[in-house]
């Protein structure tokens, strides 16, 4: 392509080169200006949250507001511990996110493997049934799900937080796409070598679908961490709640003490923000995959 275009433009582009470069320069500055403004709009609230969390209550309601705290108060952070059982809720959130993520990675990859590589009667019907789950907004199933938890005597327990979230039609589809993208010869060759389905699944397919597993794992972790409605419904003992509910409750205690509320909001989101910043590339790739493959 490049070769064929070269002879076509001998003198022309060379003459235009100088203004063109200037125009590109200006365009680049304009683009960065635009991106900086967008970044401020999207990330600015977090900066304001951080700054407010260190201010005293009186300073936070000063008019006009100060940007930097005149003195940095850590007391807002300790106040969070007094208002809600933060440590317990943090560990509940971690257990909830890890249990859902580990279970989904194992279970979804198993079912995805079956749909992608095993031939069995009724495969399309079962697949359509799985597909139908995707159409139903999960919030609408909470009444029967609550009843099931009640029947299992699991209300107000930690397992109640993660039990339904261990299974996912979405995860099955996402991983199925990954398995389908692998060369079929691989499966054939492994079978000819006498490998059984479990070995093909665990030692051949799973390692090759690693990008998909990482994507699903991170997405599940984010969704589990942030979920509000389900823990709110299924548990009401503060010691059995996740941080999302804890933060909503904190608002009930410190109605308008915004410095404390900001400190609490920051503490509840920080673990996930750290995971995201460290794994930024993977998270974004995973999100992009849901758009192109999911």
């Amino acid at each position: 392509m490049a070769d064929s275009t070269l002879p076509a433009r001998p003198a022309g582009p060379a003459r235009r080169d100088q203004p063109r470069r200037i125009r590109q320069r200006l365009g680049s500055i304009g683009a960065h200006g635009f991106l900086v403004v967008a970044s401020i709009l999207l990330a600015g609230p977090f900066l304001w949250e951080l700054l407010t969390s260190f201010k005293s209550l009186t300073e936070s309601v000063q008019v006009p507001p100060t940007w930097l705290p005149s003195s940095w108060h850590l007391s807002n952070y300790t106040a969070v511990f007094d208002a809600i059982p933060f440590r317990t809720e943090l560990s509940n959130s971690v257990i909830n996110a890890v249990a859902r993520t580990v279970a989904q990675l194992l279970f979804c990859s198993m079912s995805a493997f079956a749909f992608a590589w095993l031939k069995f009667p009724g495969r399309n019907v079962v697949f359509a049934l799985f597909l139908s789950v995707l159409l139903v907004p999960s919030q609408l199933l909470v009444i029967p799900q609550y009843q099931i938890m009640q029947d299992l005597h699991l209300l107000n327990t930690i397992p109640a937080l993660f039990l339904p979230g261990m299974f996912s039609a979405f995860g099955t589809f996402l991983l199925r796409q990954f398995f389908l993208a692998l060369p079929p010869e691989l499966h054939e060759a492994a079978r000819l070598d006498g490998a059984g389905p479990i070995r093909i699944y665990w030692s051949i397919m799973l390692p090759l679908a690693k990008p998909g597993l990482v994507a699903l794992g991170l997405l599940t972790m984010i969704w589990s961490w942030n979920d509000l409605l389900w823990p709110l419904i299924v548990n009401n003992d503060p010691g059995k709640m996740t941080l999302s509910v804890g933060i909503a409750n904190l608002q009930g205690v410190y109605l308008t003490n915004y410095p404390v509320l900001m400190a609490g909001a920051l503490m509840a989101t920080l673990p996930l923000i750290i995971v995201f910043v460290v794994m930024q590339r993977r998270v974004v790739e995973g999100i992009a995959l849901t758009g192109t493959k999911g």
């Binding site: 967008a38 904190l250 920051l266 996930l272």
Partner: peptide, 19 residues
């Protein structure tokens, strides 16, 4: 920076915006 709002818990986001 632009992706931060996506991963942040809506409950916390709502508190920040309330402020």
């Amino acid at each position: 920076l632009m992706f931060l709002p996506v991963i942040t818990m809506p409950a916390a986001v709502a508190i920040v915006w309330r402020w």
